[in-house]
Amino acid sequence: MSDGAGRQGIALSEKQRIAWLRLIRSDNVGPVTFRDLINHFGTAETALEMLPELSRRGGAARAIRIASRADAERELELAHRHGAIFVGIGEPDYPALLRKTDGAPPLLAMKGNLRIANDVAVGIVGSRNASIVGAKFAGMLARDLGAAGYAVVSGLARGIDTAAHRASLATGTIAAMAGGLDQPYPPENVALLGEITAGSGLAVSEMPFGWEPRARDFPRRNRLIAGMGLGLVVVEAASRSGSLITARNAADFGRLVFAVPGSPLDPRAHGTNDLLKDGAIVTTNASDVLEALAPLHGPTQCQSVSGADEPSVDDSELPLPPNDGDRARIVSALGPTPVEIDEIIRHTELPAATVYLVLLELDLAGRLHRHSGGLVALAPD
């Protein structure tokens, strides 16, 4: 099902793509920092030149590691050998709904049917240790949603994810991965990943090729699942599970959250039942999802994110570095408790551009923690 506004955007040149890849692979540069750097300096190349100075001004204890051009070219070549490409956030093949989320990855490695990236999608997640009934229901749901024209997004994990992917192979499924595209997890789903990318499906990852997934990488994968779908269905989930993190992400992104009720005696239903108490939509068949999502269809106004069409910037246009007094005021206003950036601006009575630039300096020096909702805090010494 087309979203009516897919494939909007401007293609990166190969020179820009290499610069973008170098920037996002450099130390202390995450999606939010990447965006702020592009907004401040106009191009990734200029931002790369500024990284050492920004890091030094932020009080870095050592020189910042900047990914080299050779590193970026090597990763692009590795992607090519694996039949994958890197797609920038402002390019036509970037998932349209994900583009609109806070902290969306500036570059995604993608392999498979790129067309599906701009189809309207629904996420389905749940327990790795799924019950027979739970896995069967997830498969039925995915099959029915696929037949209705939706792509199905999941995380390639055991249990519910596997059932959802298998049931939507023919209609289109998207696997969001926690490691590099060449490092699928769990190992028993290597064949399934091959079926997905060889058919009408797609695999996506923001992590480098060769990157073996660690525990802390899965929440980032969960954000991809939540961001790519118009809604998210949780089939089985314990009280403390990654599926509930994905549901929280989905709610934060303004997506509809659905939950399948389960027996109070089954620990795998505790999380889904709690979601229902918190307002998730009761889901006992695909019609519950289809009816709730139907009014949300229509053109999605996917704007190109700043930095996709990079303007030329000369040195005279670059922002002046903050003075030491302004920097000290901002640092003293920060503490271990996360605060909104607007609060810092009001408290210090400094221009927003100055505050954002100092936060960039601190971030690149490893002295700033970014939290969900755009909150920031000073990292402990």
Rank of each mutant, 00 (worst) to 15 (best):
A164E: 02
A269W: 06
N118R: 13
D278K: 14
V358N: 01
A96K: 04
A117K: 11
E188D: 11
S241C: 03
H165K: 06
A178S: 04
P336N: 10
I18V: 15
A151S: 15
A176G: 10
N39H: 07
G227Q: 08
L364R: 10
G172F: 11
N323E: 13
G210H: 10
A63G: 10
R25G: 02
S2H: 13
A121L: 02
H369R: 14
I245Q: 06
S332T: 13
R327Y: 03
H80T: 13
R220M: 09
Q301C: 07
R17I: 01
I330S: 08
E188W: 05
E310I: 04
I89P: 01
V32N: 05
T348W: 03
I85M: 11
V122H: 10
H80W: 12
E236A: 07
A117R: 09
R158S: 13
L357N: 11
Q183M: 15
L181Q: 09
G374H: 08
N189M: 09
R329K: 15
G262H: 06
L244D: 01
R62W: 03
R327M: 05
Q16N: 11
A237G: 07
F41S: 00
H270K: 15
R255P: 01
H371L: 10
L48M: 05
T101W: 00
A61Q: 13
D278Y: 06
P336I: 04
G307N: 08
Y94P: 02
S306F: 12
R221T: 04
R57V: 03
L350W: 05
A61C: 03
H270S: 12
L54W: 10
A167E: 02
T283M: 10
P295Q: 13
A67W: 02
L276P: 01
G58M: 05
T33G: 00
A308C: 15
S13R: 14
D314R: 12
G180S: 08
G58K: 07
L350A: 10
G146Y: 05
N129S: 15
L78E: 13
A151W: 06
G146K: 00
A178T: 06
R216S: 14
G6R: 12
R56Q: 14
A47M: 06
E195R: 14
I160D: 00
V257S: 06
R346C: 00
F86M: 12
L357H: 13
S239F: 11
R248W: 01
A247I: 00
R25V: 03
I85N: 11
A47V: 00
A280G: 09
G180T: 08
G103V: 00
M110P: 01
H347W: 07
L192M: 14
